[in-house]
Simulated scan of single mutants.
Amino acid sequence: MHARPCGGHAVLLEVDGSAAVAAVVAALRAAALPEVRELVPAARTVLVEVAPGATPDRATQVARDAGADAGEAGTGTVHTIPVVYDGADLALVAETAGIGTDEVVALHSGAEYRVDFCGFAPGFGYLSGLPEPLRQPRLESSRTAVPAGSVGIADVYSCVYPRRSPGGWRLIGRTDTVLFDPSAERPALFTPGDRVRFEPR
């Protein structure tokens, strides 16, 4: 792990991959260090912001000690998302994978995913754990508007669009589950380290 100073009150922790990110975030949350103000996980980094006047030294040490737990699957929070598999790109995904649409549904719903990090839009989680046959590139041209609740895949990730927005992921289904509610006590449903399962409806 590499620790790089970032501004006057933060450190950027560079790790080997998403499993290490999840382990570092879980360890820092469990440590509950009073100087830590915010954690921002990404695909291979965790930004740790501390209070003015504090140093990130203790947080960095906690992160280094978490290395042994880098293989953990995620937190204890598991979300089950009901999905109607009728997405606009379902047939394209099946054709690209060389399988039937029923097998696409079985593969996608049979896996357990981990929220590696959130970004792009509030409540948008990047969910790792996509089965190998479904690992496909984004569309060549992005859509100008993807409906909220759309379930998509791209590269090694699956996702659920929390609100209507542009997007280039291959859409395979939809859900009525609310991913982001700014009026809720916890606006975003997904937190990095959470686990997600999709249930066909």
Rank of each mutant, 00 (worst) to 15 (best):
A31V: 05
V11E: 08
A184C: 05
T191Q: 14
A148P: 00
A63R: 09
R195V: 04
E140A: 15
S150A: 15
C118A: 14
D102A: 09
A97V: 05
V160P: 10
V46L: 02
S158R: 07
A184N: 08
R64N: 03
L12I: 04
L130N: 05
G193P: 04
L92N: 12
R143N: 04
V115Q: 04
V36F: 02
L107D: 01
A68S: 14
L13H: 00
S158G: 13
E72V: 14
L130G: 02
S109F: 09
D57Y: 01
D65N: 12
V93Q: 01
C118E: 09
T175Y: 14
G67K: 04
P5A: 13
L13C: 04
A51Y: 08
R163P: 05
T75Q: 03
V15A: 01
G71P: 07
Y157L: 11
V105D: 01
G110K: 06
G167C: 12
A43Q: 14
T101S: 10
V48Y: 00
T191C: 13
A30F: 10
P162N: 10
E49N: 00
G129E: 05
D86W: 10
S165C: 11
D16Q: 12
P137W: 07
G149R: 01
P133W: 03
L13K: 01
R197C: 11
E49K: 01
L189R: 14
T144K: 14
V25I: 10
A111C: 07
A22Y: 10
A73C: 04
D155N: 14
Y113S: 06
R29L: 13
D57Q: 13
Q136S: 14
R164N: 14
E49H: 02
T45N: 12
A154I: 03
A10G: 08
D176Q: 13
V40I: 15
V104P: 04
H2N: 12
S183I: 07
A30S: 13
A68E: 15
E38R: 00
D116W: 01
V48E: 00
A27L: 09
V62T: 13
R170Y: 11
A97L: 10
V15Q: 07
S165K: 08
I99N: 06
L39T: 03
A22W: 04
F198G: 04
P82G: 09
A148L: 05
A26G: 12
L134E: 08
R114A: 08
G152N: 13
V40C: 06
L90G: 05
V178R: 15
V83A: 04
I153R: 00
L127H: 05
L107Q: 11
A184T: 07
A66Y: 06
P147R: 10
E103S: 00
T60F: 02
A30N: 11
P187D: 02
A66I: 03
P5S: 11
A148F: 09
V48G: 00
V36N: 01
G167M: 08
V115A: 08
A26R: 13
R37W: 00
